[in-house]
Simulated scan of single mutants.
Amino acid sequence: MSRTDRARAGAYGAAACAVAYGSMKLAQALGANALADKDPLPPHLREQLLTRDPLFVASHWVLAGAAVVGVLVALATVRPWGARVPRRLLLAITWTLGIFMITRSIGVVGFGFVGDALVLTGVRPPPVEHAALARTLARWDLLLWSPFFLLWGVCWATAGWRLYRRGPHTSAQERQDALGHHRG
């Protein structure tokens, strides 16, 4: 696979992950469980999520909408119509999302591979009254959420790298022509 194909795959991968995430959040907003019980939240927030607290329902609608925007941003990095979007804006969004999601997956912000491993090995034991739940959620995060956010973050970073490599001197028309040439 050529470098250009990998970069395009990153953009389409970011869009696909946004669709998957947005679909789950939309399902939750409409009342489905859709892995809500596997969300690594502190117990009091988890309870609010599972009892469909209005704030959580509203947040799911917002996140579903943000996922739609994410799909459009990811596609803007590879589709001809995206040449009309300011390159610096796309760079800022793709790199910010890529770094945030990779950081989340690693566990610098609490959850992620590092945080989950610390809970599961007992190095950072959870409160005794929630120990079993914390270990269950850490396993789910370690096997599902952290890899998903790592993949999504790498896709965003790859899409951002493609934009960066195109260079700021490339005109919108040149980018549109180049993107149209690779439609295949």
Rank of each mutant, 00 (worst) to 15 (best):
A29K: 01
H60N: 15
I99C: 09
L120W: 04
A83T: 05
A11Q: 04
A15F: 06
D177R: 10
R3L: 13
A178T: 06
S23R: 05
H44F: 08
G22A: 06
R162G: 08
Y21H: 14
A83I: 13
L45D: 08
W156S: 08
R124V: 13
L97Y: 13
A131H: 08
A58P: 04
L72Y: 07
T96Y: 15
R84P: 03
Y164R: 08
V119C: 08
F149L: 10
I102F: 08
R165G: 06
A76Q: 01
P80S: 04
L90D: 02
A134G: 05
A159T: 07
L26P: 02
L45V: 09
R87W: 05
R166Q: 14
V119M: 03
R84N: 11
V128D: 08
A36H: 02
A34S: 12
A32L: 15
R6M: 13
P40W: 07
L143Y: 14
A9K: 03
D141C: 12
W81T: 00
L151S: 06
P42N: 01
D177Q: 10
Y21V: 13
R52Q: 14
A74Q: 05
L150F: 14
L75W: 04
A14Y: 04
A132S: 09
L144M: 11
E174R: 11
T4D: 13
R46S: 14
F148A: 04
R139G: 11
L179P: 04
I93V: 15
L63H: 11
L49G: 00
P127I: 11
C155Y: 06
A92I: 11
W152V: 06
A74G: 12
T121P: 01
A159M: 09
A64L: 07
A9V: 07
R46A: 14
T121Q: 03
A157Y: 00
A29M: 09
F148E: 07
C155P: 00
S59E: 07
R124G: 02
V73K: 03
W156P: 12
W81A: 11
Y12K: 09
A18W: 10
G160Q: 01
H181R: 15
P126M: 12
L150A: 12
A64N: 01
V85D: 00
T94C: 14
V71I: 15
V62M: 11
F100D: 02
G22M: 08
A32F: 13
I102G: 03
G31E: 12
L118I: 04
L118H: 04
